[in-house]
Simulated scan of single mutants.
Amino acid sequence: METPFVTSIIQKVAEKIGAVVLVDPECTFVGLITFRNGNKTFFRSSRFSINSSGSVAIAKDKGVSSFFLNKFGYKVTEGQTFFSEELCEELANTRNIDTGLYYAKELGFPVIVKPINLSKGVFVTKVHNKQEYYQAAKKILQKTSVFIVERFYSGNDYRIVVLDDEVISAYQRIPLFIMGDGQSNVLELMQEKQETFIKNGRKEIIDFEDYRIKKNLRRRKLNFNTVIPKNNIVYLLDNANLSTGGEAVDFTENIHPDFQKLAISIAKDMELRLAGVDILTSDITSPIVDYTIIEINGAPSLTHYASFGEVQTKRVENLYLKVLKALENENFD
Protein backbone atom coordinates (compact mmCIF):
# COMPACT_ATOMS: atom_id res chain seq x y z
CA MET A 1 0.00 0.00 0.00
CA GLU A 2 1.31 3.45 -0.94
CA THR A 3 2.35 5.57 2.05
CA PRO A 4 0.31 8.80 2.27
CA PHE A 5 2.21 12.04 1.76
CA VAL A 6 1.82 13.31 5.33
CA THR A 7 2.88 9.96 6.80
CA SER A 8 5.97 9.83 4.60
CA ILE A 9 7.00 13.35 5.67
CA ILE A 10 6.42 12.53 9.34
CA GLN A 11 8.63 9.46 8.96
CA LYS A 12 11.30 11.55 7.26
CA VAL A 13 11.43 14.36 9.82
CA ALA A 14 11.06 11.99 12.78
CA GLU A 15 14.26 10.28 11.74
CA LYS A 16 16.07 13.63 11.98
CA ILE A 17 15.25 13.92 15.69
CA GLY A 18 15.62 10.25 16.55
CA ALA A 19 11.90 9.57 16.94
CA VAL A 20 10.30 6.24 16.01
CA VAL A 21 7.08 6.13 13.97
CA LEU A 22 4.72 3.14 14.17
CA VAL A 23 2.16 3.21 11.35
CA ASP A 24 -1.02 1.14 11.13
CA PRO A 25 -0.41 -1.09 8.07
CA GLU A 26 -4.06 -0.90 6.99
CA CYS A 27 -4.83 2.73 7.86
CA THR A 28 -1.47 4.11 6.77
CA PHE A 29 -2.45 7.68 7.57
CA VAL A 30 -2.60 6.82 11.29
CA GLY A 31 0.45 6.38 13.50
CA LEU A 32 2.19 6.68 16.84
CA ILE A 33 5.34 8.76 17.32
CA THR A 34 7.70 7.81 20.16
CA PHE A 35 10.34 10.43 20.98
CA ARG A 36 13.78 9.84 22.43
CA ASN A 37 12.70 11.20 25.81
CA GLY A 38 9.86 8.67 26.02
CA ASN A 39 7.02 11.04 25.13
CA LYS A 40 4.47 9.61 22.73
CA THR A 41 1.84 11.17 20.50
CA PHE A 42 -0.62 9.91 17.91
CA PHE A 43 -1.33 11.48 14.54
CA ARG A 44 -4.10 10.95 12.04
CA SER A 45 -3.28 12.44 8.65
CA SER A 46 -2.67 16.16 9.38
CA ARG A 47 -4.27 16.02 12.85
CA PHE A 48 -1.88 16.22 15.79
CA SER A 49 -2.34 16.64 19.53
CA ILE A 50 -0.62 20.04 19.32
CA ASN A 51 -4.12 21.55 19.35
CA SER A 52 -6.72 20.70 21.98
CA SER A 53 -9.69 18.69 20.74
CA GLY A 54 -12.03 21.43 21.98
CA SER A 55 -10.33 24.17 19.98
CA VAL A 56 -10.27 22.00 16.85
CA ALA A 57 -13.97 21.22 17.26
CA ILE A 58 -14.83 24.92 17.60
CA ALA A 59 -12.75 25.76 14.53
CA LYS A 60 -14.47 23.03 12.51
CA ASP A 61 -17.93 24.43 13.24
CA LYS A 62 -18.11 27.38 10.85
CA GLY A 63 -21.03 29.02 12.62
CA VAL A 64 -19.63 28.78 16.14
CA SER A 65 -16.09 29.81 15.15
CA SER A 66 -17.49 32.79 13.27
CA PHE A 67 -19.43 33.83 16.41
CA PHE A 68 -16.30 33.79 18.57
CA LEU A 69 -14.11 35.50 15.97
CA ASN A 70 -16.71 38.25 15.67
CA LYS A 71 -16.78 38.65 19.46
CA PHE A 72 -12.99 38.93 19.43
CA GLY A 73 -13.31 41.88 17.04
CA TYR A 74 -12.38 40.28 13.73
CA LYS A 75 -14.23 40.85 10.47
CA VAL A 76 -16.12 37.69 9.56
CA THR A 77 -18.66 36.69 6.95
CA GLU A 78 -22.26 37.69 7.68
CA GLY A 79 -24.33 34.53 7.83
CA GLN A 80 -26.82 32.36 9.65
CA THR A 81 -27.20 28.64 10.24
CA PHE A 82 -30.25 26.58 9.26
CA PHE A 83 -31.23 23.14 10.43
CA SER A 84 -32.96 19.95 9.40
CA GLU A 85 -35.90 18.77 11.51
CA GLU A 86 -33.98 15.57 12.34
CA LEU A 87 -31.34 17.59 14.19
CA CYS A 88 -33.44 20.08 16.08
CA GLU A 89 -37.19 20.20 15.57
CA GLU A 90 -37.63 23.38 17.65
CA LEU A 91 -34.99 25.36 15.73
CA ALA A 92 -36.10 23.88 12.43
CA ASN A 93 -39.50 25.50 12.87
CA THR A 94 -37.97 28.94 12.45
CA ARG A 95 -34.63 28.19 10.78
CA ASN A 96 -35.22 25.52 8.17
CA ILE A 97 -34.49 25.21 4.48
CA ASP A 98 -37.39 27.50 3.56
CA THR A 99 -36.53 30.29 6.00
CA GLY A 100 -32.97 29.95 4.72
CA LEU A 101 -34.25 31.07 1.33
CA TYR A 102 -35.84 34.19 2.84
CA TYR A 103 -32.58 34.97 4.58
CA ALA A 104 -30.68 34.54 1.31
CA LYS A 105 -33.06 37.01 -0.33
CA GLU A 106 -32.49 39.47 2.52
CA LEU A 107 -28.73 39.27 2.01
CA GLY A 108 -29.21 39.51 -1.75
CA PHE A 109 -28.14 36.95 -4.34
CA PRO A 110 -25.59 35.64 -4.98
CA VAL A 111 -24.93 34.06 -1.58
CA ILE A 112 -22.73 31.23 -0.37
CA VAL A 113 -24.42 28.08 0.91
CA LYS A 114 -22.19 25.54 2.65
CA PRO A 115 -22.26 22.79 5.26
CA ILE A 116 -21.43 23.87 8.78
CA ASN A 117 -18.94 21.13 9.62
CA LEU A 118 -17.55 19.51 6.48
CA SER A 119 -14.07 20.20 5.11
CA LYS A 120 -12.19 20.35 1.80
CA GLY A 121 -14.78 22.57 0.15
CA VAL A 122 -17.42 19.83 0.01
CA PHE A 123 -20.76 21.25 -1.22
CA VAL A 124 -19.64 24.89 -0.85
CA THR A 125 -21.81 26.59 -3.47
CA LYS A 126 -22.35 30.10 -4.78
CA VAL A 127 -26.04 30.35 -5.59
CA HIS A 128 -27.73 32.99 -7.70
CA ASN A 129 -31.43 32.21 -7.37
CA LYS A 130 -34.13 30.15 -5.64
CA GLN A 131 -33.61 27.05 -7.77
CA GLU A 132 -29.87 26.95 -7.16
CA TYR A 133 -30.41 27.61 -3.46
CA TYR A 134 -32.70 24.62 -2.99
CA GLN A 135 -30.44 22.40 -5.05
CA ALA A 136 -27.42 23.28 -2.88
CA ALA A 137 -29.27 23.14 0.46
CA LYS A 138 -30.87 19.76 -0.28
CA LYS A 139 -27.51 18.31 -1.33
CA ILE A 140 -25.99 19.43 1.96
CA LEU A 141 -28.87 18.13 4.08
CA GLN A 142 -28.45 14.69 2.51
CA LYS A 143 -24.96 14.63 4.02
CA THR A 144 -25.27 16.61 7.25
CA SER A 145 -27.96 18.31 9.33
CA VAL A 146 -26.85 21.94 9.38
CA PHE A 147 -25.89 24.44 6.71
CA ILE A 148 -25.01 28.11 6.70
CA VAL A 149 -26.06 30.88 4.32
CA GLU A 150 -23.49 33.65 4.00
CA ARG A 151 -23.21 36.96 2.23
CA PHE A 152 -20.97 36.72 -0.84
CA TYR A 153 -17.76 38.71 -0.59
CA SER A 154 -15.46 39.47 -3.50
CA GLY A 155 -11.70 39.38 -3.15
CA ASN A 156 -8.73 37.08 -3.44
CA ASP A 157 -8.78 33.92 -1.34
CA TYR A 158 -5.66 33.37 0.80
CA ARG A 159 -4.64 30.72 3.30
CA ILE A 160 -2.09 31.61 5.97
CA VAL A 161 -0.65 28.68 7.94
CA VAL A 162 0.50 29.54 11.45
CA LEU A 163 2.49 27.59 14.02
CA ASP A 164 2.70 29.41 17.35
CA ASP A 165 4.23 32.85 16.61
CA GLU A 166 5.36 32.07 13.07
CA VAL A 167 3.74 32.15 9.63
CA ILE A 168 4.88 28.96 7.89
CA SER A 169 3.26 29.57 4.51
CA ALA A 170 0.90 31.99 2.82
CA TYR A 171 -0.66 31.42 -0.56
CA GLN A 172 -3.51 32.54 -2.76
CA ARG A 173 -5.98 29.83 -3.70
CA ILE A 174 -7.46 29.98 -7.20
CA PRO A 175 -10.62 27.95 -7.94
CA LEU A 176 -10.57 25.00 -10.33
CA PHE A 177 -10.40 26.29 -13.90
CA ILE A 178 -9.63 25.21 -17.44
CA MET A 179 -7.93 27.23 -20.18
CA GLY A 180 -9.08 26.84 -23.76
CA ASP A 181 -6.79 25.87 -26.63
CA GLY A 182 -9.28 26.52 -29.43
CA GLN A 183 -9.57 22.80 -30.23
CA SER A 184 -10.51 20.84 -27.11
CA ASN A 185 -13.96 20.78 -25.56
CA VAL A 186 -14.70 21.29 -21.86
CA LEU A 187 -14.64 17.59 -21.02
CA GLU A 188 -11.31 17.05 -22.79
CA LEU A 189 -9.77 20.04 -21.02
CA MET A 190 -11.00 18.71 -17.68
CA GLN A 191 -9.49 15.31 -18.44
CA GLU A 192 -6.18 16.96 -19.33
CA LYS A 193 -6.29 18.87 -16.05
CA GLN A 194 -6.93 15.68 -14.15
CA GLU A 195 -3.97 13.99 -15.84
CA THR A 196 -1.76 16.94 -14.88
CA PHE A 197 -2.89 16.63 -11.25
CA ILE A 198 -2.04 12.93 -11.22
CA LYS A 199 1.33 13.60 -12.83
CA ASN A 200 2.11 16.14 -10.10
CA GLY A 201 1.12 13.75 -7.33
CA ARG A 202 -2.27 15.29 -6.54
CA LYS A 203 -4.23 12.16 -7.54
CA GLU A 204 -7.75 12.31 -8.98
CA ILE A 205 -9.23 15.54 -7.74
CA ILE A 206 -11.89 16.55 -10.26
CA ASP A 207 -15.34 15.11 -9.68
CA PHE A 208 -16.81 15.10 -13.18
CA GLU A 209 -20.30 14.56 -11.71
CA ASP A 210 -20.09 17.55 -9.34
CA TYR A 211 -23.39 19.40 -9.68
CA ARG A 212 -21.59 22.70 -9.04
CA ILE A 213 -19.47 22.27 -12.18
CA LYS A 214 -22.53 21.57 -14.28
CA LYS A 215 -24.32 24.54 -12.70
CA ASN A 216 -21.47 26.91 -13.51
CA LEU A 217 -21.25 25.65 -17.08
CA ARG A 218 -25.00 26.15 -17.58
CA ARG A 219 -24.75 29.68 -16.17
CA ARG A 220 -22.14 30.44 -18.85
CA LYS A 221 -24.25 28.70 -21.53
CA LEU A 222 -21.59 25.97 -21.87
CA ASN A 223 -21.56 22.19 -21.62
CA PHE A 224 -19.02 19.37 -21.74
CA ASN A 225 -19.03 19.44 -25.56
CA THR A 226 -18.31 23.16 -25.92
CA VAL A 227 -14.93 24.03 -27.47
CA ILE A 228 -13.27 26.82 -25.48
CA PRO A 229 -11.43 29.53 -27.49
CA LYS A 230 -7.68 29.71 -27.04
CA ASN A 231 -6.51 31.34 -23.77
CA ASN A 232 -10.09 31.74 -22.50
CA ILE A 233 -10.39 30.77 -18.84
CA VAL A 234 -13.48 29.03 -17.48
CA TYR A 235 -13.83 28.68 -13.70
CA LEU A 236 -15.55 25.40 -12.91
CA LEU A 237 -15.98 25.90 -9.17
CA ASP A 238 -16.46 28.94 -6.97
CA ASN A 239 -14.68 27.64 -3.87
CA ALA A 240 -10.88 27.76 -4.07
CA ASN A 241 -9.96 24.71 -1.97
CA LEU A 242 -6.87 22.93 -3.29
CA SER A 243 -8.54 19.62 -2.48
CA THR A 244 -11.17 20.30 -5.17
CA GLY A 245 -8.68 21.31 -7.86
CA GLY A 246 -7.76 24.83 -6.83
CA GLU A 247 -4.25 26.06 -7.55
CA ALA A 248 -1.84 27.93 -5.30
CA VAL A 249 0.21 31.07 -5.85
CA ASP A 250 2.82 31.34 -3.13
CA PHE A 251 3.14 34.60 -1.18
CA THR A 252 5.09 33.29 1.81
CA GLU A 253 8.06 35.52 1.06
CA ASN A 254 5.91 38.58 0.33
CA ILE A 255 3.13 38.53 2.91
CA HIS A 256 2.82 41.90 4.62
CA PRO A 257 3.56 42.02 8.38
CA ASP A 258 0.00 43.26 8.98
CA PHE A 259 -1.40 39.97 7.72
CA GLN A 260 1.22 37.95 9.57
CA LYS A 261 0.18 39.63 12.83
CA LEU A 262 -3.50 39.18 11.99
CA ALA A 263 -3.19 35.43 11.31
CA ILE A 264 -1.07 34.82 14.42
CA SER A 265 -3.50 36.82 16.55
CA ILE A 266 -6.51 34.89 15.21
CA ALA A 267 -4.86 31.53 15.91
CA LYS A 268 -3.95 32.58 19.46
CA ASP A 269 -7.44 33.88 20.23
CA MET A 270 -8.93 30.61 18.96
CA GLU A 271 -6.49 28.67 21.21
CA LEU A 272 -4.84 27.00 18.21
CA ARG A 273 -1.08 26.54 18.04
CA LEU A 274 -1.32 25.15 14.50
CA ALA A 275 -3.93 26.73 12.23
CA GLY A 276 -4.86 27.55 8.68
CA VAL A 277 -6.49 30.98 8.49
CA ASP A 278 -8.55 31.60 5.35
CA ILE A 279 -8.95 35.27 4.45
CA LEU A 280 -10.52 37.24 1.61
CA THR A 281 -8.71 40.46 0.78
CA SER A 282 -7.49 42.38 -2.25
CA ASP A 283 -3.74 42.06 -1.69
CA ILE A 284 -1.90 40.17 1.04
CA THR A 285 1.39 41.89 0.20
CA SER A 286 0.14 45.37 1.15
CA PRO A 287 -0.94 46.89 4.49
CA ILE A 288 -4.39 45.83 5.62
CA VAL A 289 -7.16 48.00 4.22
CA ASP A 290 -9.98 45.50 4.48
CA TYR A 291 -10.40 41.75 4.91
CA THR A 292 -12.97 39.08 5.70
CA ILE A 293 -12.23 35.84 7.52
CA ILE A 294 -13.81 32.93 5.66
CA GLU A 295 -12.95 30.30 8.26
CA ILE A 296 -10.17 28.84 10.37
CA ASN A 297 -8.85 25.29 10.20
CA GLY A 298 -7.41 23.48 13.20
CA ALA A 299 -5.84 20.69 11.13
CA PRO A 300 -4.67 22.30 7.88
CA SER A 301 -3.67 19.81 5.20
CA LEU A 302 -0.73 20.92 3.06
CA THR A 303 -0.55 17.89 0.78
CA HIS A 304 -1.77 19.74 -2.31
CA TYR A 305 0.26 22.84 -1.47
CA ALA A 306 3.43 20.72 -1.34
CA SER A 307 2.75 19.35 -4.83
CA PHE A 308 3.38 22.78 -6.36
CA GLY A 309 7.16 22.56 -6.07
CA GLU A 310 10.28 21.73 -4.10
CA VAL A 311 10.18 25.00 -2.15
CA GLN A 312 6.64 24.28 -1.00
CA THR A 313 7.51 20.67 -0.09
CA LYS A 314 10.44 21.92 1.97
CA ARG A 315 8.14 24.33 3.84
CA VAL A 316 5.78 21.50 4.69
CA GLU A 317 8.67 19.34 5.91
CA ASN A 318 9.87 22.27 8.02
CA LEU A 319 6.39 22.69 9.51
CA TYR A 320 6.08 19.05 10.53
CA LEU A 321 9.61 19.03 11.93
CA LYS A 322 8.69 22.00 14.14
CA VAL A 323 5.42 20.32 15.15
CA LEU A 324 7.25 17.16 16.19
CA LYS A 325 9.88 19.11 18.13
CA ALA A 326 7.12 20.98 19.95
CA LEU A 327 5.31 17.73 20.77
CA GLU A 328 8.54 16.08 21.93
CA ASN A 329 8.87 18.63 24.72
CA GLU A 330 5.18 18.79 25.55
CA ASN A 331 4.11 17.94 29.09
CA PHE A 332 1.57 15.16 28.66
CA ASP A 333 0.90 14.66 32.39
Rank of each mutant, 00 (worst) to 15 (best):
V64H: 02
Y305S: 01
I288Q: 07
Y158R: 09
V277Q: 01
P287I: 02
E295F: 06
V311C: 04
R212S: 03
H128W: 14
A136P: 13
I168L: 08
T34A: 08
S49D: 13
S8D: 14
F72P: 07
L69K: 10
R212K: 06
L101I: 10
Y153D: 11
R315T: 10
Q80W: 14
G63P: 03
N318D: 14
H128M: 05
I294M: 14
S301F: 07
R159T: 03
I205Y: 08
K105D: 12
K114P: 07
Y102Q: 15
F48R: 15
L327C: 02
T196A: 13
V30N: 11
Q260P: 04
A263G: 01
E188S: 12
D61F: 05
F29L: 01
G298P: 09
E188W: 06
I294Y: 00
S84G: 07
F109S: 03
K139M: 12
T7D: 07
G108N: 08
D238N: 14
A14W: 09
I266A: 03
T252E: 09
N329M: 04
I160A: 00
K230I: 12
N318G: 06
S52R: 02
N331L: 14
L242I: 00
K322E: 00
K130F: 02
F109I: 00
I294F: 03
Q183G: 01
L319A: 09
R95M: 12
N156K: 13
R159F: 05
F43V: 01
N96H: 13
N329L: 05
P175G: 08
E89A: 14
L217A: 10
M270S: 08
V161C: 03
G73W: 03
G201T: 09
K120F: 11
T99M: 14
V23E: 01
N318P: 04
L319V: 03
I255E: 11
R202Q: 12
N329S: 08
A57T: 14
A248H: 05
N239C: 08
L262K: 11
L237P: 15
I148N: 10
L163E: 05
F43I: 02
I228F: 09
V161K: 04
G155W: 09
L327E: 03
S52N: 03
V311K: 12
G38W: 05
I9Q: 08
K143N: 15
F224P: 04
V30D: 10
F43W: 04
L327F: 03
K40F: 00
D278F: 00
L272W: 00
T3R: 11
F152A: 14
P4W: 00
T41P: 07
L32R: 15
F42E: 12
Y103A: 02
E90Y: 14
T226S: 15
I228W: 10
F147Y: 11
R218I: 06
K139V: 11
S184R: 10
H304C: 07
K215A: 12
